[in-house]
Structure formats: structure tokens, C-alpha cells
Design a protein around this nucleic acid. Structure first.
Lengths: 180, 180
DNA sequence: GGGCTTGACTTAGCCACTAAGATGATGACT
DNA sequence: AGTCATCATCTTAGTGGCTAAGTCAAGCCC
């Protein structure tokens, strides 16, 4: 393995966040990179698409949701969510039930008793993160959790803002390909 | 909008991390969700695939890399990276150059001067993250950055471990479909 | 009840991805 | 130098997830 030229480019700070090399915001990006890689690997291990894990994760964090809410939360189209739910149901990780109050809706619920494979894959990471947390005292933990939560809110609100902005102005620009 | 049943399920803690509802590790997952959504939206706005942004991000953070290193870092196959580089080159965000020392290799470099569109999309988030950082004093910032960095390392090492483990045992299990 | 909206699914087609193999460069070993 | 195994990237074939647009049923409102 020969060396490749190092040194992060300066003017890229605003691409892959920013500023002082050791600013918290900067390392957030490394975290995102690592989390994405893990998601990729886990999806492969489970024989699922990456989006399926995202959907499952939303359900795990927020509890049962409708298909439309899942589309909203993940940024997928409703069609893509339909496909993802088909796959999750097929392997038994989730189930669809009719909303008793509004029969157009489909409420999606995780089948906790069937999640063994996912939980097993996640367990080592969960344990090591808990161990990491345990190194901090309660006041520090509160500071850390608060920071992460606020950063997450900023990511989320920015995502929603960009999406809303895009729906208006650039309805959907895709590949410009010559006619047949 | 009628209410959907709330309450995050207890035994899912190990799916979507863990423990005390306000543990830092738990909110990390919300961050990942929000970051994924943003990535999705940004890719759509730029007319690129999600993976293309991941590749670009790796280049932004770590500097020029070979195609193989990008595959390693992103979890994509080399073929997928080839396609991603084709797209990034086509829109001018990156360029390929031959490694002078080893002509099998292709070194990929971001074309900083062409990144305007990406930088513009990222700017609001970068600014608000910087503003968030500014609310903390240097000692707190050091604590935060250290925590995030260590968490990122755990995500990364777990991803690498799972991938390595998977390469051995389950070479690649995919759709079991009947013969033609 | 008519007309409009809403929510999930369906369809058609595109394109990103994986897996396997081709191409060509490198380095080691004689 | 010649040979061969290895390595890095690209190429090819095929799969399937995704978007966009449309369908259909259920709710809503007057």
C-alpha cells in the first residue's frame, strides 16, 4: 500500500463541515460517514435494502406509523415505502394493520418478537456505546445528549427546508437524455 | 391528522440505541436519521445518487483517494464506485488522474472550484452548526468533539468488523428465487 | 349525494447496484 | 529478461429499488 497525498483541502470546510479541525461540528461528519457504512453493511447482512433499515429505525424510535408518515420521515416516495414494507413484512420484521378510524390508512408496526437477527447484529455496538457513555458523569452526559439532539434538529430542519424549497422551484430535474 | 399510538417500545432499545431515554447514545440515532434524510434530499437536488454524495464526502474529509480506497470507505463494490465517479466527473465535481507511481491506480480529486452548487446547499447547515458550537466554551467543545469522535470510531470499527465477519461466513446471501 | 381531497397501492421505465470477469500494470522469483 | 501470480480499475450482464404518474377506495364538506 503506497501512500496517497494527505491533507484535507481548506476550502472544503463548508462541504464536509467546517471550521476548526477539532470543532464538534466537523467530527459530526465522520460520524455520519461511519454510520452510513454500518447501515450499508448491516443491510447486506440481513438481505435487505438500505432503506428498509431506515424505515425500521423510524418505527423503532417513534413507534407505529402510517405508510405516509414513513415516506415523509424517510424522504422516500410512497411507492418506495410500499416496496420496503413488502420486504419487511416478508421477512417478518413488521406487519401492516388497518387503521380502525380511517380505513384508507395502513399502520405499520414492528414485530418485536421477530427482530432477533437485527438486535443480534446491533448488540455489540449498543454495548460499546453504553460503555462509552458510562465514562462520563451525569452532567457531562446531559451536555452531550443535549448537543447531539440540537445538532440532529438542525439537520432535520435543514432537510425539511431544502425539500420544501425544492418542491416549489425545481420540481424534479433528472437526467437529460437524448430522444430515441 | 388523527393521532397514531405513541410510546416507543421498550425492548427495541437495542435496535435503535439504547438505554436511558436521554443517554447520548440514544440521540445519536436521531442524528443519523436526520442526516440520512438530508443526504437523500441533497442528492435529489443535485441530480446525483446518494452514494455520489458519500463518495464526495469521503474525498472532502480525507483528501484525494484511489478508487479502491473509496470502495473500501463507502462499502460499495468497485463497479459501483466506477459508476459514481463517472457521474461525479460528468457534472465536474471530481476528476480522475493517473497515479504517477502506479499506473493501475486512479487517484480521484475533488475539483474545489466546481463545487459551488454543493457548497451553496450546505452553507445554511454549516452556519447553524457553527452557531451551535459557539454556544459552548472551549473546554465543552473539546469534550463534545472527543465524544463524537469516539462514537464515530465505534461505528466505524463495528462496521468493519461486521463486514469482515460477513465476508467469511455468509459469502453473500441474496434472494432465494425459484429456477427458471 | 356530488365533488374534492387524501392515503396507499400499482405500473412503467430508469438507473444504481452486485457479481463476475476482462484488461492491463506491477512485482517477485528465477 | 521472462514468467506468473497478484493487484487496481473498468466492463458486462442482470437484478431490483427507486421515482413519477396514475388508480382506486375511503373520508370530508357543503
Amino acid at each position: 500500500m503506497s501512500r496517497t497525498p494527505r491533507r484535507p483541502l481548506e476550502s472544503l470546510d463548508s462541504l464536509a463541515p467546517p471550521g476548526p479541525p477539532d470543532a464538534p461540528a466537523r467530527v459530526l461528519h465522520e460520524l455520519g460517514e461511519a454510520a452510513g457504512l454500518l447501515e450499508q453493511v448491516m443491510a447486506g447482512r440481513l438481505g435487505l435494502a438500505r432503506s428498509d433499515l431506515v424505515v425500521a429505525s423510524v418505527l423503532a424510535v417513534h413507534g407505529p406509523r402510517t405508510a405516509g408518515q414513513l415516506a415523509e420521515a424517510t424522504g422516500l416516495t410512497t411507492g418506495a415505502v410500499t416496496g420496503s414494507l413488502d420486504r419487511l413484512e416478508r421477512v417478518g420484521f413488521a406487519k401492516r394493520t388497518a387503521d380502525p378510524g380511517d380505513r384508507r390508512r395502513v399502520i405499520v408496526t414492528l414485530r418485536v418478537e421477530r427482530l432477533g437477527p437485527i438486535i443480534a447484529l446491533n448488540e455489540p455496538l449498543v454495548r460499546s456505546l453504553q460503555a462509552l457513555d458510562a465514562e462520563y458523569d451525569p452532567a457531562q452526559r446531559a451536555l452531550l445528549a443535549d448537543y447531539v439532539r440540537r445538532a440532529a434538529l438542525q439537520f432535520r430542519s435543514e432537510a425539511l427546508r431544502l425539500r420544501a424549497e425544492g418542491r416549489r422551484s425545481a420540481p424534479r430535474k433528472r437526467r437529460r437524455r437524448a430522444a430515441t
